[in-house]
């Protein structure tokens, strides 16, 4: 099978691709005009970075770093719900 060095370099390549796509998302977020587009761009950025945290935790052999993935995914969903409620023109407590 693949040696350990090869596995780690494949993982590092995946981390590099995630960073590249996050930079594209951030560029698009900085030049975007309408509000729903910006909201789904923040979503994509957050989900990307959740995977990035887990990959970084495997890459540095540190279990302590993987904690942040679940809150990132959950609070991006909450951000979605708040913005859609605002766009529908309803109060936040409805």
């Amino acid at each position: 099978m693949l040696s350990l060095e090869t596995q780690m370099y494949i993982l590092a390549g995946a981390v590099g691709l995630y960073i590249l796509s996050s930079l594209i998302y951030a560029y698009k977020l900085a030049t975007e005009k309408s509000v729903p587009d910006m909201v789904i761009l923040v979503d994509s950025l957050t989900y990307d970075l959740a995977v990035f945290i887990v990959a970084l935790s495997i890459l540095t052999q540190n279990a302590y770093l993987a904690v942040g993935a679940l809150p990132l995914a959950i609070w991006a969903y909450v951000f979605d719900i708040y913005m859609s409620k605002y766009l529908e023109g309803r109060e936040l407590g409805d």
């Binding site: 945290i53 970084l56 993987a66 990132l72 991006a76």
Partner: peptide, 22 residues
């Protein structure tokens, strides 16, 4: 939050994402 992660402080991410994004 990601700056906190690469600075080896992931316990701050738990509080900071909830406060800053939510």
């Amino acid at each position: 939050a990601l700056a906190f992660v690469v600075m080896y402080a992931p316990d701050l991410v738990l509080a900071y994402v909830a406060v800053g994004l939510g």
